[in-house]
Simulated scan of single mutants.
Amino acid sequence: MLSVLLAKLIATAVVVVGVSLAVGKLGPRLGGIIAGTPIVLGPGYFFMLRDHSTEFIQAAALSTLHALVATLLFSISFVVTAGRLSALASLGLATLCWVPAALLFSRVPGGVGGAVLMYLAILLLAEGIRRGLRLRQPVVVARSGWFDLALRGLLAGVLVSVATTLAVKSGPLLSGMLVGFPVGLFTIGWTLHERYGPDVARATVSMAQKGMLSLVAFGVVTAALVGHLPPMGVFLLALLASMGVSATLFLISQWRFRRALASRGGTLDS
């Protein structure tokens, strides 16, 4: 059992660190797309799809979608409080919001469709709060240091190994929730708050709210296709769907940026 836990922890940490490094090396276009990939959900469901039944995966995917709805509340809590509290205090409060919210949303009927509608509704709320706070865009290029990468990889590895090995004994609800915990937002919020201040951290976390739609796509495709295709076929299609949503969001943001720049009579380097 211990060897299995360690193998999954190390494998997940390698994936997380590798993707994070690639984001910084490939430039804003490809890096932005890759940053939206499910670097924690991916390894988690890779292991679960190999080892568990269709019914288990469907229930776990629905639990993950509910956890992603709770993650929006996590991000809202951090954005609202990080300007007045320390990084760890605001993240602790956000986590205290996430845990009961994930449990509560898991009891809401409606299946996958209901979870997606809940996500979209709270995303609108988050967007309204972001606009109301008038958060400024980050003015620094915040690159991850080795401490950030190691922390993110370690936390992700622990969550995935526990969720896919130990938590499965408690059923798919707990497994799906654990792999849906916002490891990325937690580490990004912490390190940016400490290194660049609350304004950069709040703006960055708020910008990630729409990007999480790529994770929603991963969960929806997994729930819809499991049992109809081979497990690795489900995994690959879910990953492609996630990357497609991330690429679409990135291209839309680029188009809006170019249009805004053109309306001001500016120029944009290619």
Rank of each mutant, 00 (worst) to 15 (best):
L178C: 07
G176V: 10
L133M: 09
S170C: 01
V205T: 09
L249V: 04
V183M: 03
Q137V: 07
P138V: 00
G265V: 12
L174F: 06
R258F: 02
I252S: 06
L240T: 14
M212T: 10
Q254A: 09
A150S: 09
K210C: 01
Q137N: 14
A150W: 02
T165F: 01
T204W: 02
Q137I: 03
G189R: 04
F181A: 13
R258M: 02
M207E: 15
I122S: 08
S253N: 11
T164H: 00
L213N: 08
A247I: 11
G153R: 03
A247R: 13
A208P: 05
L123R: 12
S263L: 04
P182Q: 05
R259C: 01
H228A: 11
G157M: 05
R136P: 02
G266E: 09
L135S: 07
A223S: 15
G189P: 04
A201C: 02
L124T: 10
W146I: 15
V220P: 14
A201N: 13
R131F: 01
A203C: 09
G244R: 08
A238F: 13
I122L: 14
L236P: 05
L251I: 05
G171Y: 02
L237A: 09
A223L: 10
L192I: 08
A217N: 09
L125K: 03
A121C: 04
P138Y: 01
P182H: 07
L229D: 01
V205N: 02
R202S: 07
R264C: 04
R131N: 00
R130N: 03
L185F: 13
R264P: 09
P172Q: 07
R134V: 03
A223E: 10
L225Q: 00
V216P: 05
R256W: 12
L225F: 10
G197V: 01
L159C: 11
G244V: 06
G132C: 05
L174T: 03
L261M: 09
F186Y: 12
L159P: 03
S214N: 10
G227P: 15
L225H: 11
L215T: 03
Q209F: 15
L120H: 14
A150K: 04
I129L: 14
L123V: 04
S214E: 11
L215W: 13
M212D: 07
T248L: 14
A262I: 00
R202V: 01
T164Y: 00
M207G: 13
W146Q: 03
S242K: 09
G197L: 04
M207R: 10
K169E: 12
T248A: 15
R130G: 06
P230A: 14
G180K: 13
H228C: 05
A201T: 08
H193T: 02
T187Q: 07
R134T: 07
Q254C: 02
S263T: 08
L149R: 14
A260C: 05
E127A: 05
V141Y: 13
V226G: 00
R152V: 11
R134S: 11
W190F: 10
L159I: 15
T191R: 06
M232L: 15
G180W: 05
T248N: 04
L178W: 01
G157W: 04
A217F: 06
G128C: 11
F147I: 12
A201Q: 07
V245K: 15
T204N: 07
L213M: 09
